[in-house]
Design a binder for these strands. Structure first.
Length: 178
DNA sequence: ACGCCGATGTCCT
DNA sequence: GGACATCGGCGTT
């Protein structure tokens, strides 16, 4: 299910980008997931209905965004790790402090900064777009052959092959070498 | 190109 | 008190 998000478009107001890299986090099957065992005010959205945005704060300064994908109470969500910018690049450049365009959305915290996503978007409905954020489909097909790897930056359940990215995209945060 | 490290809030033990 | 789904800067190859 998670790789089906590759090729879709994440939209936040006038800014948007094509999803090129995702990771799945799988509730009580996955010791690396925020929803593994612990249910709290922070991760409550993860246990809600699919199609909502779960935004969390980490390392004292960064926001990261997930699309909730599981059944109610399941705690499954997909971390949006990188986008190929499509629209609103000037706003992204202002938000990101004039970095190279390639780096605007190349990483989960970078894409949140570029699109202006933070706590105010936690729980936003990605289907209706009521919170100004949604995931759209402009007809671009998900790649038939995404690269599958282990996830980035984990210590627990680090071997699960639950990261997918668009092969050859220069906007992927950490391509496998070779 | 690669690796270390500091920043800095929130959650969990 | 320690870990953390990170990033950017600075140092070394």
């Amino acid at each position: 299910m998670a790789p089906a998000l590759l090729g879709k478009v994440l939209v936040a107001g006038a800014r948007s980008g094509r999803i090129v890299e995702v990771e799945a986090y799988c509730g009580d099957l996955d010791p690396a997931a925020h929803s593994y065992r612990n249910r709290s005010a922070r991760n409550e959205v993860m246990f809600g209905p699919a199609g909502h945005l779960y935004v969390y704060f980490t390392y004292g300064m960064h926001w990261c965004a997930n699309a909730v994908c599981g059944e109610i109470d399941e705690g499954v969500a997909v971390l949006l790790r990188a986008l190929a910018p499509l629209t609103g690049l000037d706003a992204m450049r202002r938000a990101r402090g004039g970095v190279d365009d390639r780096d605007l959305c190349r990483g989960p915290a970078r894409l949140c900064q570029a699109l202006g996503l933070d706590r105010g978007h936690d729980g936003a409905d990605l289907v209706t777009g009521g919170g100004g954020v949604w995931i759209g489909d402009d007809g671009v097909r998900s790649p038939a052959d995404p690269v599958v790897t282990t996830r980035v930056g984990l210590s627990r359940n680090a071997d699960a092959p639950w990261r997918w990215y668009v092969s050859g995209s220069r906007f992927v945060s950490r391509p496998v070498r070779g």
